[in-house]
Amino acid sequence: MTRRALLALPAAALLGSLLLAGCTADRAPGPTAPAPATTASSPDGGASPDAAAVRADGTPVASGTVTLSVLAPGGPPTATPAEDDAVLLAVAVPADDAAATLVTVATLAPPEGGTIDVLDDLSAVVRGADGAVLAGLTAPLLDHPAGRTVRVRTAEDGAVTWLAEGAAGSGAGGGTVTATFAATAVLDATWRDLADEGGRSLAVEPAAWARRGSLASEEAVWSALVAAEPEADAQNVRDQLTCHLIGAPDKATWNLEPWRPDVGLLETIAALCNPS
């Protein structure tokens, strides 16, 4: 089973409770990640504006030093500040055609030269022109879906479009789509010498949004760690990171140790994130 499949499993809460018993017995498991919605590359729902048009005419939404542009036919988005420089982005679904089966909600454009890379669970990472991860974006969620879901359309110029889908007559219009946009994935990463246990340990404090579990949060945390602490750039360390994200999201720090053996992700999980 792949890393992405493990992170997207609806049963992650059950796995988390098992791991948490070994890693963080004094804490409750984190919330279950939502089941992934359906991706789409269909041309239905109307033509999407290109990234340049969205940057020119859309509303800027900033987290830290990273700015997305959002163009929404239902009106400008709202951006509510959240923990650790994150922003709760909310966009109204147009309600002018209640019989529509697919309605464009918003098109998001990255900074010029960058891309928005949509992952398997519909979370996304915002990348710069050099491919580096600049920010994360949680999967878009539609309130009161009433049989509706959110589709995501990607474009070659790096923009993405959110669409609300419903059966004919169900009314694809109405409601609000929300997602968290965050440029900060790691609040602190500090090396400690634990010679009595086996060697150095990197205590990682993730940002609040990154603890909630998504492919984007894992990639954003890992990218930030490797950039700040190149010594951590090893597969066994990444497996320990993924293990903590799945099974111990609320632990105060995620302790990652390069000296532990590289046994693969599944065996790392079986060892409660601490293979020996």
Results as ranks from 00 to 15, higher is better:
P140T: 07
L122D: 14
A129V: 12
G131K: 10
A135G: 09
A146G: 06
G128N: 12
L137A: 09
P140Q: 07
L142A: 08
T138Y: 01
P145T: 00
G131C: 10
A139R: 02
A132H: 14
A146L: 06
V125Y: 01
A135V: 06
P140G: 11
V126T: 12
V118T: 13
P145A: 01
V125F: 01
V133W: 02
L134H: 11
A135E: 11
L137Q: 12
L142D: 05
D143F: 07
A135N: 04
L134A: 05
D143T: 04
L122S: 11
T138M: 02
L122M: 10
L134W: 03
R127A: 07
A132D: 15
S123W: 03
S123T: 15
L142W: 15
G147Y: 04
D121S: 01
A139K: 01
V133P: 08
A146R: 07
L141Q: 15
G147I: 09
L122Q: 14
A139C: 02
H144M: 02
L119K: 01
V125G: 02
P140L: 02
D143L: 10
V125W: 03
P140I: 00
A132T: 15
D130N: 13
R127S: 14
L137F: 12
G128R: 03
V133F: 13
V125M: 00
A132S: 12
S123A: 09
L122G: 15
L137H: 04
D120R: 05
A139E: 02
R127C: 09
D143K: 06
